[in-house]
């Protein structure tokens, strides 16, 4: 199911405000049917809110969205029949068995002949022998698999995955990546996933939108985005303060930004610049040094001036402060 022009999701001017806080700020995007689209950004950037609005869990403040060919606001039930959802925190009814969770999902999606498919899903996720156990007794990985089985039961045309691999061990994570790609390629299911793991977005997504403070700061294929940044970044932390001028004077350094006690240097090529940098810092104690070659992380650094894991939208105070600044700037 998709719009006439083959888009599974179309969002125009999508905005969600919670009181004075704008969690999603006039976001526009299209997700072509059958593709994997990633929302990449730090915690609190608005990724989950976008999923909530698109799935009809939360009403949008402004804007328009069509999902699976239907208007999210006007025809929410049609949308909900055609989407699957995998929550970041794994939501199941722990008092019910695996099979009973599938049964309930079938009831909620008004399925009649569903048992054969449910059996296959359990088989695929290696959960068949635990089907009668309460899911409260499953391991984290098993619970995640169960949740994905629920999301696939009614053959959705779009699956929303909120931080699909957060808190999973590398084995399960790899298995899940394979599954996401498999579901997408074999069934043509469109996948919209959010992540703050660079590698995840890089390896899984056909297109990625980098999101910060509720706004899309860059959109494109992972390789397009990476090719935008024709530079390396060097993060540097020293024991005593180093003046900005000294860093700027190092040959090959094109930009210097401070991030707390650390510096982020934009350089032509880290291999060429590092010898000069060490020479310039001969008398200083280097606490930490990190080289970021072109990656989605360096795209984020280039645009926002900070690392994704340090953007820390989880810090509400910062979030508020940021929006106070934005509001002041607008006035």
């Amino acid at each position: 199911m998709s719009d006439e022009n083959g888009d599974a999701i179309v969002a125009k001017g999508l905005t969600k405000r919670y009181g004075a806080i704008t969690a999603v700020d006039h976001v526009n995007f299209r997700v072509p049917s059958g593709s994997v689209f990633g929302l990449l950004g730090p915690n609190g950037a608005g990724k989950t809110t976008i999923i909530k609005v698109l799935t009809g869990l939360s009403d949008m403040t402004e804007g328009k969205a069509r999902v699976a060919g239907y208007d999210v606001r006007k025809e929410p039930m049609h949308v909900k029949e055609r989407i699957g959802w995998v929550a970041a925190e794994v939501i199941l009814d722990d008092d019910l068995s695996g099979w009973e969770n599938l049964w309930l999902q079938a009831k909620l999606q008004r399925l009649s002949g569903w048992t054969a498919r449910a059996e296959q899903l359990l088989e695929y996720f290696e959960l068949s022998d635990r089907r009668k156990d309460k899911v409260g007794k499953y391991s984290t990985g098993m619970r995640k698999k169960m949740e994905i089985a629920l999301a696939l039961l009614h053959q959705p045309s779009i699956i929303f995955m909120d931080e699909p691999t957060i808190g999973l061990d590398p084995n399960v994570r790899r298995m899940l990546w394979k599954l996401i790609t498999g579901v997408n390629r074999e069934f043509g299911v469109t996948v919209l996933l959010t992540s703050h793991y660079i590698e995840e977005a890089d390896s899984l997504c056909d297109r990625v939108a980098i999101i910060d403070h509720g706004k899309f700061v860059a959109t494109g294929t992972p390789s397009e985005l990476k090719s935008r940044v024709r530079a390396d970044f060097i993060e540097l932390e020293t024991k005593d303060e180093v003046s900005e001028e000294r860093l700027r004077a190092v040959p090959g350094v094109s930009e210097v930004r401070s991030q707390g006690k650390a510096w982020i240097l934009k350089v032509s090529s880290a291999e060429d610049v590092l010898p000069g940098l060490f020479a310039a810092l001969k008398g200083d104690v280097i606490r930490r040094i990190n080289v970021e070659k072109p990656s989605l992380e360096s795209v984020f650094i280039d645009i926002t001036g900070k690392r994704m894991d340090q953007a820390g939208g989880g810090d509400v105070q910062d979030f508020r402060k940021f929006y106070m600044q934005v509001r002041r700037a607008r006035q």
């Binding site: 498919r117 290696e126 009614h154 579901v183 074999e186």
Partner: peptide
């Protein structure tokens, strides 16, 4: 059980929705 030993195929049977 790692992903490499997987034998089961992705589900091929479809569920049926009530009219």
């Amino acid at each position: 059980m790692s992903g490499e030993t997987k034998v089961a195929a992705l589900p091929s049977v479809h569920a049926v929705r009530h009219g």
